[in-house]
Design a protein around this nucleic acid. Structure first.
Lengths: 349, 349
DNA sequence: TTGTAGGCGTTATCAT
DNA sequence: ATGATAACGCCTACAA
């Protein structure tokens, strides 16, 4: 049972040629006589040769350099968890000779995003990890990186491009359906539901749209009940009045689905106005959301595992560069349903 | 920004001694003059030396050997996912020189468990990975491994022992609370709830008890509603009548919490007898459970991520042996809430 | 076309 | 106490 680990030297001895020849066969570099080729291939067929990746890397001994571009978490706390994942990866891969650098840009400023990209492209790293906040600009930039032979990975978003090495994210349409099923379970039939898109900026508007489509799609398929679903898009400043107004116009409202990480803003209003029995489902484990989840104002949060997203992306790149593994073009993370009871088990991870 | 990677050779040159001396300082092997010690330590203080783990492993070049003992999935399909996780680890770590072997025992036979352990201990592996099915016997066996200096990791269960390197599992009490909160959300107040423990054998009875305690604990803390919670422990053969009988005695029943992976057995009866509006919450993504989740008979499943459990356990051991990382004594995995909509996102992972 | 020699960074042994 | 040297497995340059 205890299989021997074969080395190139073993193969050379077994097939009666030198290590160099075996290497040429393994890497298909040519310059090998038919006879030697056959001899080596015969041995390779018999044994299960696994090149020692550790030795290979020691030899190659390249320092790989990866740049990560993230919106500044001080401007939008959602991104803090992504930064945590990056830092975990930095610590873990440092001793493997992988240098990961983080660059912040302002989520409100296309200009800052473009400038940071200019800086990064001048560093000519081996790979960059991006998110798709400014769609048009990012597409153009991906093109530039591609021409420079810098690998691009995307996190937090799906994108259809063969110039992207891999992306890690969540099926947003499906997460809308998940929210819908939960909402259906906890609200009375024949009531009204709000979908609220709320953010300071609407860069990632496709995000919200996909979630809304999934949410509506679920209710459309429902055979029982008669829900009325109403969407609103609200910019952050002074929206309190707007929300209060909307609620007063719709006394039959039983649930609110917030498609961004800003559910706590709605929760705050619901709590203050003491309207009761409005169920809230939102996204992301921000501290403020957690507060309202724990006191029962928010019923469910959907977790997009932002920390895992960046960590996975980076460890894929490491696998690719160091251990030349095939990495999937797309990795869709689980859509985690969080209530106040299983919350803690997620925070620890 | 691009930090240089320092090697032992660099340190030797900088401090004016030889590589050998640096090595002795780094490993505190003594036999170093005060002068040389100071010189090297001064340099070490200045620079951030990270030993190259790849080179170290190449040199050490030990084949690590890990044995995993799992209940045979043919006798209880729950364990199949664990085997999947093991196989993933086998493939991933093979090229790092880690050999992982799987051994099956019968979950119904303490004897087979003890025999397999005898076989394994004779192989004197570097580590074993166990689950805590036969409590008393396992405790004794852990002692034996400990004396042989074979590391022991545990998956699927918590255990308090300093002779165990690490365990990966779930907080079962808390998972009972999670089930309770969900149940509370989807059943009317002032109704009855069954807790049903159902299995062929009751080896892992503590499992079920902890889940029950968590479940009851949640309802005890509830300030609203007036639930009556009734537990039943049922052995598998010919229990159909028993269940039907119990249901007929309790017309006010609105939900059933199944503490094992056998919720599908209850679901089948509910479906056949066409009793409606009984909510079911169970554990584990077995194929039969999934069927009833998809057709709406089962409302929620709690996922214990068995595949992840074995994979994590093994990759911790690899981290420990190859990269001498500190590994946590305990890793509690998230308590995943699964409904028919987010199910697919878990199956792909 | 083929084989030999050297080196990657670390560790361990062996003279000095 | 110290430094030189060889070895781990793989890769590559260069000599034959």
């Amino acid at each position: 049972m205890k299989k021997k680990k074969y080395t190139i030297k073993d193969i050379a001895k077994l097939s009666g040629v030198s290590k160099g020849t075996v290497d040429r066969v393994l890497h298909k570099r040519g310059k090998v006589s038919q006879k030697a080729l056959d001899a080596v291939n015969n041995i390779l067929k018999e044994i299960d040769y696994q090149p020692n990746l550790i030795a290979r890397n020691l030899k190659i001994n390249k320092v790989y350099h990866i740049c990560v571009l993230v919106p500044n978490p001080h401007e939008d706390p959602y991104w803090q968890a992504c930064v945590d994942g990056i830092n975990e990866a930095i610590a873990e891969f440092k001793s493997l000779g992988v240098i990961i650098e983080t660059f912040f840009f302002s989520p409100n400023s296309t200009k800052s995003f473009l400038e940071i990209n200019k800086t990064v492209i001048n560093l000519s790293p081996d790979a960059v990890l991006l998110t798709l906040l400014f769609y048009k600009e990012t597409i153009e930039i991906i093109e530039k990186y591609y021409l420079e032979n810098i690998k691009v990975s995307i996190f937090n978003c799906q994108i259809r491009s063969n110039k992207v090495k891999n992306f890690v994210g969540q099926d947003l349409f499906q997460s809308g359906r998940v929210a819908a099923q939960l909402m259906n379970m906890i609200t009375p039939e024949n009531s009204d539901i709000f979908i609220i898109h709320i953010d300071e900026v609407f860069n990632n508007a496709t995000h919200m749209q996909e979630k809304e489509m999934g949410f509506r799609n679920y209710f459309k398929e429902l055979t029982t009940g008669n829900y009325k679903i109403i969407s609103h898009k609200i910019k952050s400043p002074d929206f309190n009045k707007e929300i209060a107004h909307l609620l007063s116009l719709n006394p039959n409202i039983s649930g609110i689905f917030v498609t961004t990480s800003k559910a706590y803003k709605i929760a705050r209003i619901i709590q203050d106005t003491k309207i009761k029995d409005i169920k809230i489902i939102g996204y992301d484990l921000l501290e403020e959301n957690i507060t309202y989840l724990n006191n029962g104002i928010i019923d469910f949060l959907i977790h997009q595992n932002p920390k895992g997203q960046t960590y996975f992306s980076l460890s894929y790149l490491v696998d690719f560069f160091l251990f030349d593994k095939d990495i999937p073009a797309e990795k869709l993370l689980p859509i985690d349903i969080i209530n106040s009871e299983n919350l803690i088990s997620y925070l620890e991870n």
